[in-house]
Design a protein around this nucleic acid. Structure first.
Length: 589
RNA sequence: GCGUCCAUAGCUCAGCUGGAUAGAGCAACGGCCUUCUAAGCCGUAGGUCGGAGGUUCGAAUCCUCCUGGACGUACCA
């Protein structure tokens, strides 16, 4: 579609130059770049629109008159006349495309390229590292992580679809005082219990002790100092503490990996802060030697941020230990050595904007040119219809609990529709529906905005939801199965694109043709919501199309074959787009 | 205080680099199942795009100010 628009843009520019000559104006004043290409508000007006206001000044003529003159020139171009019909609507020049060739080409390329249809080259070969999730090992994932994971995974897939060489990385926060708190509570209260002995998912088991520490510390002022003692012991490689730390981290990480598997998230490389945190300290000390940073009398090391209109920031505590920022400095440098990326994206909540501003600046100050290619993809908070999630009030929505709730609702829906026989494994289908509901709902909203997650709404099978989109794929699959059964009846038919003349068919063809553009833009903007919007658009159009235009129930085998071809192409594009936003494809539901 | 981000229908969200009467879904009301899954489709109603200026032939979109909200501004992460 982009190519088609570009062709028309050139044609209009050419016609404008001819008009310029008629008006005795220098034709070089008309540049193709200044010709704006748009889509008319309604399909009846045409498929491509050119507003001609900008030329009114150059031509000293009313835009409507220019439109008429350009239209006249275009009708004389035989090539243009063959590609579409030009019509003037006031100051707009609209083109109604002759769909036959576009329909034929689009269906052919979709069915020929299959999974690759929509893939672009805009980032061909670019090495992009993307960091997301970054859980702590003292508790399970919550709803906020789910938005992070959905965004990270989706952006990674979208960048990959634009040709980038993507590496997804996770940074597990497995050290620090908060980790020691759950360890200490376990040591004190667990009496040797294990996730198995208590029948709990292992990360939830660890989380229980983190909560327990919190309760204990409210009653006993000795709790906090003891946790600090434990951190010291950990840093001194105390064998007993290290052993406990390993065991509990393993529990948490195993549990979290189960959650990743359910929601469709994965990583190419996992970093652990326990392994990278010392690196940052070394880099800061190097910077101190070079005079990039300075030391206070108490021994703490600082960076002056006045160059970016900020105050100053501590990089090493007076006792010489690192901070969050220090660690991220080390991790970034290590990563760039491991895999020299050309771009690095951090998917982290917007509350850490300041942190990344400082981090990028510090890396730049240290002389790393690649610091310019670091990007913080920040996103807003996820709240519930009941209000904000607050960990102190225990209103944080656990990721697994939420998923389970969604899955149960989906299973209930399948049963209430008497579809158990049809879908086969109900729980498996329900899990796929839950995943679609979750990812679609989370990605539908532009990242920068705070959002409200409504579980009931997300799982609904009608409306603008993941399950609705999935349902369209299932409907097409079902239709194609029926077609395969009756194939012989239509053996006389041929694909004849001129038969696709209904307005819904025209819309569908244009949508199919636009898909590669949507993928490209989503990649440029790091924004999956362009894909979700597209998916809903094409699904709704398809839904209307097959409601009004029978595909298989048709006497003309040519119509059947032609529509089946169109429908196949739609299914292919749906599947390609599903993948980009984490919606599992279901053949039956 | 200062900084960053957000503000569109009752609710949840779209609205592309400024362009033709601002779009969906949910909720409400009303239609449509001897025909490819009614988990659907169609229609009705609902908006001075937070407010005020400005730039422009043209602003939900760009600029300034104001209001409201979120988040930062730790030797926490």
């Amino acid at each position: 579609m982009e190519a088609v628009k570009e062709q028309w843009k050139q044609r209009v520019a050419e016609a404008l130059r001819e008009v310029a000559v008629d008006h005795q104006i220098d034709p070089t004043a008309v540049e193709a770049e200044s010709v704006v290409v748009e889509t008319p508000p309604t399909p009846e007006l045409g498929d491509i629109a050119f507003p001609l206001f900008p030329f009114a000044r150059i031509f000293k003529t009313a835009p409507a008159k220019i439109a008429a003159e350009v239209a006249e020139k275009l009708t004389l171009h035989s090539e243009a006349a063959a590609a579409g019909t030009v019509q003037v609507a006031g100051p707009y020049l609209n083109v109604a495309l002759k769909m036959v060739s576009l329909a034929g080409e689009v269906c052919a390329s979709v069915l020929d390229e299959r999974d690759s249809y929509g893939r672009g080259q805009s980032l061909q070969g670019t090495k992009v590292m993307i960091e997301f999730s970054c859980p702590n090992t003292n508790k399970p994932l919550h709803l906020g992580h789910l938005r992070n994971d959905a965004l990270g995974e989706s952006v990674a897939r979208i960048l990959g679809a634009n040709g980038a060489d993507v590496q997804k990385v996770n940074l597990i926060n497995d050290r620090g005082i908060h980790i020691c708190k759950s360890m200490l509570a376990y040591k004190k209260f667990a009496d040797g219990a294990t996730p198995e002995s208590e029948g709990l998912k292992s990360d939830h088991f660890v989380g229980k002790y983190y909560v327990k520490f919190d309760q204990w510390s409210k009653q006993d002022p000795q709790a906090e100092p003891q946790a600090r003692e434990m951190l010291k012991a950990w840093e001194a490689d105390d064998p007993e503490v290290t052993e406990l730390w390993r065991r509990m981290n393993r529990w948490t990480i195993e549990g979290i990996e189960t959650t990743y598997a359910k929601t469709g998230v994965s990583f190419d490389k996992i970093y652990y802060e326990s392994q990278t945190f010392k690196r940052g300290r070394e880099e800061v000390l190097k910077g101190l030697e070079k005079g990039t940073f300075y030391k206070e009398a108490d021994g703490s090391v600082w960076v002056d941020l006045s160059e970016i209109d900020l105050d100053r920031k501590v990089l090493l505590r007076s006792d010489g230990t690192s901070l969050y920022l220090t660690q991220d400095i080390g991790t970034a440098i290590e990563r760039h050595q491991d895999w020299p990326f050309e771009r690095m994206i951090y998917v982290v909540a917007s509350e850490q904007r300041y942190h990344f501003k400082v981090l990028f600046h510090v890396l730049k100050k240290l002389g790393f040119g690649w610091a310019d290619n670091l990007y913080h993809l920040s996103y807003g908070m996820v709240n519930l219809p009941e209000g904000k999630m607050k960990s102190r009030e225990g209103t944080v929505v656990d990721a697994d609990d939420l998923f389970e709730q969604l899955q149960a609702m989906a299973a209930e829906e399948i049963r209430s529709k008497d579809r158990e026989e049809h879908v086969g494994d109900v729980e498996k289908a329900a899990a796929a529906v839950a995943q679609a509901a979750l990812n679609y709902y989370l990605l539908q909203v532009a990242p920068a905005r705070d959002m409200i997650f409504n579980p009931e709404e997300s799982i609904s099978f009608n409306g603008n939801t993941g399950p609705y989109l999935q349902y369209m794929g299932a409907r097409i699959s079902s239709m194609l199965r029926k077609y395969e059964d009756r194939k012989a009846e239509f053996s006389d038919g041929n694909f004849q694109p001129e038969l696709l003349e209904a307005s819904e068919e025209r819309s569908l063809i244009k949508l199919l043709a636009e898909y590669p553009e949507v993928v490209r833009r989503a990649g440029e903007e790091y924004n999956p919501n362009l894909i979700t919007t597209y998916l809903y658009d094409i699904s709704r159009t398809f839904s209307k199309f097959y409601h009004d235009h029978p595909v298989l129930h048709n006497d003309d085998p040519n119509v059947v074959i032609t529509r089946v071809t169109l429908v196949r192409a739609i299914l292919q594009v749906l599947q390609n787009a599903y993948f980009l936003v984490g919606i599992p494809f279901l053949e039956r539901m």
